[in-house]
Design a protein around this nucleic acid. Structure first.
Length: 606
DNA sequence: GTCGCTTGCCAC
DNA sequence: AAACGTGGCAAGCGAC
């Protein structure tokens, strides 16, 4: 499909504004939803990517043949009238982005009439880029990417133009802008029949709905104790500098120069065997360093830990929290191929977890607090063993299902079956081994990897794996079934894939790694259930409190006056015995700081 | 100076 | 027969 015959217009006069209005009332080469609602393409250009602070510059509207660019400052009235008066719906690519800017201008589009090609594309192929230019190149016209790159070059090369300063009348700027709703419309025309054929609308609906709740979380922000972060950051940085100086003085080495440090330690008689992933050199990771009894190794290791904490987790807070001490991470509702979300700038899904002998982890998490001071509390609710439940559900294995239905700790129940010993209790090492095997199943680990992660011998690992398979034959059968189906489809349809039981979402395999599909199914099922629960929590009135999604845990910032209600709603929504063939349950915790969270029941007693 | 790659490391 | 999955990010370093 070529973009040759497209007509692009800039509204820069009364006449052109009237022309646009006339066009809006005519028949379009657009797209009709099943209910007869007609869609037009919609896009915007802004001063930048910050949906809370950047401004609208251009509004673009079009169908499959015609695109209009409407300068917001001069002709905003024309755009506003079209956006509010148009009786149909709109198709956008990454709808929450543009909608943020419209909403800030007081223009509220009907959410139920917004169609988004980005989640559509992800659902159809979760391994491909969801950038409009790449999708356009693949589905619409290969030249679309070149045009976009051409514009990027033009803006960057012209004496310091930016997206905020490039003149609206610069032809490439407005015309490529006007082209985008056209491309989006054509993308929809290509993808919609595929959605029908693939049965992908249910997965799409989930994504298209949840993205609004996710964006609201980002905008709401996570509150930080900036001064606390600053103090800790200074102290940790000072420590790192001290260590660097000490290493320089005593060894004439850079504390971060791994290659030089390896050379020195070798000259001191220490042996290295572990190699890096590429095999290019010896590894000097934490495992290696911990095994070396030398003051230099200890210094390098401790500096690394503190540097990581300071540069990755504390510096962002000090430098990027807004005037209200709120952090607003970018949350990508479709960050991973499995439909898990990802987060960046900063990624609050990977803050160090609190445990013994990790005081710095507590420091990092304690930077995150309630915004309501004494009158508020952070509330946490996370699914219990959600991936294991997904595996039990999808495999239908009787023993695994039973372990969830029976009283007591799930992994104890599991271990008792694996080792045929009903005396096993929580602290029995066999519980941990069973847990490792279980998660190994989910990740697709082999015996060697299991031995490594569980810290047991190859023989023990093989025996444990064998015992697990014997106790839960349904799991092994499920693994085999998934691979067989994928390979059959690879032969008959050209691509190997399996589908999520809840939404019929497609999980394609990388050729030769069909075993990983079990992981995609398990991880994807958990992600879908989490998204469904986020929608339910929002519908139940908790939308004002949700702050962060962390894979299987929702984090909220709640005024104490609302605590009882919030807890009640969480218990009602997060515990669900309808979703799977076994109940889905969730824990509850509270704390005035993230690092101080404790079980809700314990907190109530205290 | 910036860019891309490798290495290492944080989470679920 | 054998195969641990999904992410984001910073430092170091060589290349341009």
């Amino acid at each position: 499909m070529s973009l040759d015959a497209v007509q692009l217009h800039l509204i820069d006069s009364i006449d052109s504004a009237f022309e646009f209005k006339r066009w809006l009332g005519e028949r379009h080469n657009g797209y009709q939803l099943v209910d007869g609602v007609e869609l037009l393409g919609l896009d915007s250009e802004t001063t930048g990517l910050d949906t809370r602070n950047d401004r609208l510059r251009l509004v673009q509207i079009g169908d499959a043949d015609t695109g209009w660019a409407i300068p917001w400052e001069r002709w905003g009235g024309v755009a506003e009238e079209a956006l509010t008066q148009w009786g149909g719906g709109w198709v956008l690519h990454n709808a929450t982005f543009d909608e943020s800017f419209f909403a800030r201008e007081g223009i509220n589009l009907r959410r139920d009439r917004l169609v988004d090609t980005r989640p559509m594309a992800h659902v159809l192929d979760p391994t491909y880029s969801t950038a409009l230019k790449n999708l356009a190149a693949k589905h619409v016209d290969p030249r679309a990417k070149a045009l976009q790159d051409d514009l990027d070059d033009a803006i960057n090369s012209r004496g310091g133009w930016t997206w905020a300063t490039v003149p609206i009348t610069f032809q490439k700027y407005w015309s490529y802008g006007a082209l985008d709703p056209v491309i989006t419309m054509r993308l929809l025309q290509q993808l919609a029949p595929k959605m029908d054929a693939d049965g992908s609308w249910k997965a799409y609906e989930l994504e298209n709905t949840v993205q609004w709740v996710i964006r609201a979380m980002s905008h709401r922000g996570a509150h930080v104790d900036r001064e606390y972060a600053r103090q800790k950051s200074i102290a940790f940085s000072r420590y790192c500098v001290d260590v660097e100086q000490w290493v320089r003085e005593h060894y004439d080495l850079g504390a971060g120069s791994d290659v030089a440090i390896i050379e020195y330690l070798k000259s001191e008689g220490y042996e290295f065997t572990k190699r890096t992933k590429s095999g290019a050199r010896y590894a000097l990771d934490s495992e290696v360093l911990e095994a070396i009894d030398h003051p230099l190794a200890k210094a390098v290791l401790s500096r690394r830990q503190l540097l990581k904490v300071t540069s990755t987790y504390l510096s962002h807070i000090v430098e990027e929290a807004d005037a209200d001490d709120l952090m607003h991470p970018d949350i990508n509702p479709l960050g991973a191929r499995t439909s898990r979300m990802s987060m960046s700038k900063p990624n609050l899904q990977n803050l160090p977890r609190v445990s013994e002998n990790k005081p710095h982890a507590t420091v990092v998490r304690n930077c995150y607090t309630t915004r309501y001071g004494e009158d508020g509390v952070m509330v946490f609710s996370d699914f219990d063993q959600i991936e294991m439940r997904g595996l039990a559900h999808m495999s239908g294995d009787e023993g695994m299902l039973q372990a969830f239905v029976s009283e007591g700790d799930f992994f104890v129940n599991l271990a008792r079956q694996v080792f045929r010993d009903d005396t096993i209790i929580k602290k029995d090492p066999r519980r941990q081994i069973t847990k490792n095997v279980g998660y190994g199943k989910i990740y697709g680990a082999g015996i060697a990897k299991l031995a490594l992660t569980a810290g047991i011998s190859h023989e023990q690992a093989a025996a444990a794996m064998h015992a697990f398979d014997a106790s839960f034959p349904g799991v092994r059968a499920f693994q085999n079934r998934v691979q067989r189906i994928a390979l059959e489809r690879k032969t008959s349809e050209g691509v190997g894939y399996v589908r999520s039981p809840l939404t019929h979402r497609r999980h394609p395999s990388d050729s030769g790694k069909e075993y990983a599909l079990v992981n995609y199914l398990v991880q994807g099922l958990a992600a879908e259930m989490f998204k469904m629960k986020i929608l339910e929590l929002d519908a139940a009135g908790l939308g004002d409190f949700m702050v962060l999604p962390v894979h299987d845990e929702i984090i909220m910032d709640v005024p104490k006056d609302n605590l009882r209600d919030v807890i009640g709603t969480l218990q009602k929504v997060m515990n669900d015995d309808q979703l799977l063939s076994i109940p889905v349950t969730a824990g509850l915790a509270v704390g005035s700081r993230w690092g101080e969270k404790q079980d809700y029941d314990d907190a109530m007693v205290a």
